[in-house]
């Protein structure tokens, strides 16, 4: 089947394969950037300026410059600085993880700040250690707070994977634009839209479910 001379029976399997690449970037970014984001949040809250200030600068740099530029930087920068290069995929994941951890850091910082001081005080008088307080009492409440903002961020992530095309990672958008060039048609790019939309629908539904699951109590 063809539309506008684009052979869909060839294009669709390619795009499905490229979607797997999107999903890989998506999950690897989540797995590394969320824990890293928590560390960033705690570092930002540190009362030691030597920890909190550099963290803030890191966040400023990675939130303040285009992710596309950061992808270039991790792809080509190491060669100029250290004389070696990461492979495309590694450079891509590094850029995404470090970029997203900066954003998650802010989201989690807000979530931690939203927990009333009384929670820490009650825990302290009951004899909980600081670690126990954080793990059992603060963290579960923070997670509930940050679910909506995190879902938002992850939907952005799905779309941001399209930026990886600039360092030739064979993800969905690159496959679509390549096909567009090959067949002199905009159809492949238009077809890419429902692919992104379906993936993000899954993210949206998943987060609605998590939100509902966390709804057994109110803060």
């Amino acid at each position: 089947m063809t539309i506008d001379n684009v052979p869909l029976h060839l294009l669709i399997p390619d795009m499905l394969e490229a979607s797997v690449e999107v999903i890989k970037i998506f999950f690897l970014t989540i797995i590394f950037s969320i824990p890293l984001g928590f560390i960033v949040a705690l570092a930002r809250r540190s009362r030691f300026r030597i920890i909190s200030f550099p963290t803030r600068i890191y966040q400023l740099i990675f939130r303040g410059t285009p992710l596309m530029l950061q992808l270039f930087f991790f792809m080509y920068g190491p060669y100029y600085i250290f004389g070696f290069s990461f492979n495309r995929f590694t450079a891509c994941i590094l850029a995404f993880v470090i970029n997203y951890a900066a954003y998650f850091g802010e989201i989690f910082r807000g979530g931690i700040a939203a927990i009333p001081k009384g929670q820490y005080e009650a825990a302290k008088v009951l004899g909980y250690t600081k670690l126990q307080t954080f793990l059992h009492i603060i963290l579960p409440q923070v997670i509930k707070h940050v679910i909506p903002a995190t879902g938002n961020e992850l939907m952005t992530l799905v779309k941001d994977t399209s930026l990886a095309q600039v360092i030739s990672v064979p993800e969905l958008f690159r496959v679509a634009t390549n096909a567009g060039t090959r067949y002199f048609s905009s159809i492949p790019i238009i077809i890419a839209a429902p692919f992104y939309l379906i993936m993000n629908s899954v993210v949206e539904v998943t987060f609605k479910m998590i939100e509902k699951k966390m709804d057994y109590y109110k803060n």
Partner: peptide, 20 residues
């Protein structure tokens, strides 16, 4: 200090129960 904190209990004005 930990040993001592276990000897005292405190009831707060605004309860401070753990909502989770």
């Amino acid at each position: 200090l930990h040993e001592i904190i276990l000897k005292v209990g405190l009831v707060f004005q605004n309860f401070n129960l753990f909502p989770n």
